[in-house]
Simulated assay, not measured.
Amino acid sequence: MQKPPTPVNEAQRLQALRSYDILDTPPERDFDDLVAIAAAVCDAPIALVSLIDEQRQWFKARTGLAARQTPRELAFCAHAILRPDQTLVVPDARDDARFAGNPLVLDDPNIRFYAGAPLVTPEGHALGTLCVIDTKPRDLADKQHQALTALSRQASRAMELRRVSRALARQLQESEWYEHRLLQYQSELEASNAALEASNADLAALTRTDPLTGLPNRRAFALALEQAVARSHAAAPLQVAVLDIDHFKTINDVHGHAEGDRVLLAVADALRLYAPGPGSVARYGGEEFLLLFEAPQPQAQLQCEFVREAIANLPLGLPLTVSIGLAAYRTGEEPAATFARADQALYAAKRGGRNRVVLAESE
């Protein structure tokens, strides 16, 4: 058995694959129909829509096979994507040096015959194949070969249509949201001077509010810290915590940005429950949040631990943890300096293994 070589354009190919946001998604009828037709036309017991990522071969659609994925190094399709312009046909895998010792040949599903037509993007990147498999040596008739190639083109078009449709849906949703907001402001501006003042107040609030979670943003949090400093005496303790969702990029890459937004909203809701008071929780940016405690550091640290455990127990259907850095405000320093020390403690929490609270070093 020979391990499949890596395509020369692997980085661009993987980037193109991720742009389709299709890996680990539920079955879809368009792709299920294509494998059913391929199996029937080629008289094969197994047919697959297979996608090759860094480490595995994942099946978007399958018939005749229970597995959802296999290691990439065992995948026939990992060889097929090396030639995007050709259908790879293996009449007898046991007579082919690339596959003779492959466990998928020697054991279940006992592959002997394979034919895979690459799924190619408009830019020419082969993302996987539409393939058929049999447990006995054989070949494809010319018409079967042509049909399999045609069906792979249909599968490629279905992927492209799916990508474009999802992108358009997101743009339409955003457009409708902005249009709704604009109409709302126009109505307020046309009402009266009182409505004008209310609209201006709303606009000011928007500059201090995160549009996704509805939490105050970093600017509003800095103002809340300044106000807390102004109303407290010099010895009053103030603590700032920076919270970061662990492996958030992986959530977006694997589950999609819509799922990432759902996680951000759930974390924001949890933080509201544990917020010490109005304006004391904010979205810092990306997957980071801020907490302000007008309390001694041990009490703030305990509250951060409660937050960390509460988020780890959110019923989201996927593992979720956060890392937190906590720093005490020093009399006379700028808020940015407090943020920076809390941020350094956060990175220490990341380096220490994540899912923990770390205190900033004291001078």
Rank of each mutant, 00 (worst) to 15 (best):
Q2E: 11
P5T: 11
P5V: 09
Q12I: 06
Q15H: 13
A16P: 03
L17H: 11
R18H: 15
D21G: 04
I22N: 02
L23R: 12
T25P: 01
E28D: 14
D30V: 15
L34W: 01
L34Y: 03
V35Y: 00
D43V: 03
I46F: 01
D53E: 15
Q55C: 07
Q55T: 11
K60W: 02
A61Y: 00
P71Q: 05
F76G: 03
A78S: 14
A78V: 11
A80C: 11
D85P: 06
L88D: 04
A93G: 06
A97P: 14
R98W: 04
N102W: 03
N102P: 03
P103F: 10
L104H: 09
L104P: 07
N110C: 04
I111W: 07
I111P: 03
R112P: 02
A117P: 01
V120N: 02
E123Y: 08
H125G: 08
L127K: 12
G128V: 03
G128W: 02
T129P: 02
L130C: 02
L130Q: 01
D134K: 00
T135I: 08
A141W: 07
D142G: 07
L148M: 01
S152Y: 00
R153Y: 09
Q154C: 12
R163M: 05
V164N: 09
Q171Y: 09
Q171S: 14
Q171E: 15
Q173P: 05
W177L: 15
Y178C: 08
Y185M: 14
E188G: 15
L196V: 15
A198R: 13
A201G: 12
A201Y: 07
D202C: 10
L203N: 11
A204D: 13
A204R: 15
D210H: 10
P211S: 05
T213F: 01
T213R: 04
L215P: 06
N217S: 05
N217T: 05
R218L: 09
F221M: 13
L223Y: 10
L223F: 08
A224G: 05
L225P: 04
Q227Y: 05
A228I: 06
A228F: 09
R231T: 14
S232D: 11
S232W: 08
H233V: 12
D244E: 11
D244W: 06
I245Y: 03
T250Y: 09
I251K: 07
V254H: 13
V254W: 07
G260V: 09
R262D: 10
V267K: 03
A268W: 01
L273E: 14
Y274V: 06
P278N: 05
G279Y: 01
G285S: 11
G286C: 10
E288I: 08
A300P: 03
L302A: 15
L302R: 14
C304T: 04
R308I: 00
R308G: 02
A312S: 14
N313H: 15
L314D: 06
L316I: 09
G317M: 09
T321M: 08
Y329D: 06
E333P: 03
E334L: 12
E334F: 08
A336F: 07
T338R: 05
T338K: 06
A342D: 06
D343N: 12
K350L: 03
K350M: 03
G352A: 10
R354E: 11
R354S: 11
V358H: 10
E363N: 10
